[in-house]
Nucleic acid binder design. Sequence first.
RNA 1: CGGGGCGUAGCGCAGCCCGGUAGCGCACCGCGUUUGGGACGCGGGGGUCGCAGGUUCAAAUCCUGUCGCCCCGACCA
Length: 425
Amino acid sequence: MRYTHSFLKTLKDAPKEAELISHQYLLRGGFVTPLGAGIYTYLPMGFRVMRKIYTIIQEELNKIGVEDILMPVVHPARVWKETGRFFEVGPELWKIQNRSEEDFVLAMTHEEVVTDAAKKVIQSYKDLPKLVGQIQLKVRDEARPRGGLLRLREFTMQDAYSFDKDEKELEMSYQKFIGAYKKIFERVGVKTVMIESDTGAMGGLGAHEFMMITPSGEDKIVTDGTRAVNAEKLGIAKEEDVDSPAAASKIAEFFGTAKVEFMRGIEVGNIFKLGTKYSDPQKLNYLDENNQQRPVIMGSYGIGLDRLIASIVEASHDDKGMIWPKAVAPYHIHLISIGDDEKVWNTANHIYEELWQAGAEVFFDDRLDVSAGDKFADADLIGIPLRVVISSKTLNDSSVEVKEREKKTARLVALNSLVDSVRPR
RNA sequence: CGGGGCGUAGCGCAGCCCGGUAGCGCACCGCGUUUGGGACGCGGGGGUCGCAGGUUCAAAUCCUGUCGCCCCGACCA
């Protein structure tokens, strides 16, 4: 893509509503733009990052046997009434009515819908186990959206579901997802810790969360160095509570020690052993080897994509802008031409075409009336991992400048070996 | 939902206290000079001052209501 053709517009000043660094840079860099509180449009740069993450998640889940499906965002209230969550969940569940005043809900999550679909597939122990998943919008009437992409009213989530015949098999599915999630977070460049958590409105037998540790996170974590737990599970609301007498007994009971540390994190993923929480009320049963009806044992597994994008920026930036890990960067290469010299211009255009043909995704700052400093500042802000600069300064020696976003210094590469040296492998 | 803050051009802000024909920087348009770290000169375009009432000869400014956005807390799959 050429800058002059792109829908991109960068900002020098961050909009005043943005406090978190990820929020500021994503707005300034033209990755997203707000429509309302907790509701965002993904602009081309941001959407490219979203699609990179989408693909990585799908690849890793497919590897453990998850099949991709796509469930609706508008749900007839029927299934939510079957499980009782229509009445239990509270105002976060976005309820709507159609013209006939029939109740519908917007997809806060998809357990009910996937369970309903599974009834048509799973009848026998021979139909188990099964793993399905999707990447789809979730809609929640959040009391307070916040932190840019950290807490949204409408967001994109990967959610997958396991169906097993007993808890032992569920544990195997659960472990598969833990493995896949660790690979996903590693590939997108986010360091996470897995902690024990409450099951909340999801219900079930147990749950874990994947946390990226950062002071800007809204979740609180207590750890003794080996195990970690969501502070809310211990009834701890803030850091000072860790030292309170009320918390002491719970901490001792959970960890077997009083020496614990308090941290903050962003919850980028969560996994639940649902058990029969949904299969019981929705009557998702199977016939076992002895002709006995048994409820299917379920698990659910989710990653918030928007939140993950914000987390990557929180984890990887400097005072000039974002620094995207290669795997999720909107483009591989940020190509810049300096000045309006004809030879520079022709060379840059030629390189642009060659790089695309070589399989590199290239963003070309082809503006002729913009100063070098302006272009460098934009490149640093947008944070594409590799920068290639074409200017008469180096072109006279038949070389071009190449610089990694995370490095301070550039290197010169011979023009005739450039494409081969910077193409993605 | 409680507490606090803010709504003036795409973005950042001043003007409001003390009412009198709306201003600055960035961005944008034209011409020219520039081009290795957010260039310069000259000339331009863009605003129902969030919205609705009220007070007044006159309201961005004062009063009332309302909507929106942000932050803290409660809540949070």
